[in-house]
Amino acid sequence: MSDTDPSADRLDYVAWADRLRDGELLGQECAECGHTTAAPKAACVRCGSRTLAAVTLPTDGIVHSETTIGVPPEGFDGEYQVAVVRLGDAKVLGRIDGAVDIGDRVSFADVLVADDHPAPVFEPV
């Protein structure tokens, strides 16, 4: 066994969520293959490397896909729009404040907390 915690330097969910609550949207970049994600994991989803660095994602992006939820789950009040937003080399799922179509430019504007879990909120620019 290693005498150091192998996950000590990894951007895990708790750290990602804490930073998001503070208004900073972090991602993860693989040192081996360069893959970038907005959903930090324990290993690179493309090449399996565990050498992953936390990176600050761009705050401006493009709507990749979107839908307006008309029938929400328990704990949410409808209706509202969610979108997959492209931020540089990564894509992230977030809530939209306003109304957007695919291809529209949006900016990271706020954080929504649902059941103690944060989600990024974007607004049109």
Binding site: A39, F76, Y80, L93, L112, D115, A119
Partner: peptide
């Protein structure tokens, strides 16, 4: 995804 998708209110 519990952490990355459910909080936005996805269905």
């Amino acid at each position: 995804h519990r952490q990355y998708e459910q909080p936005a209110g996805l269905t």
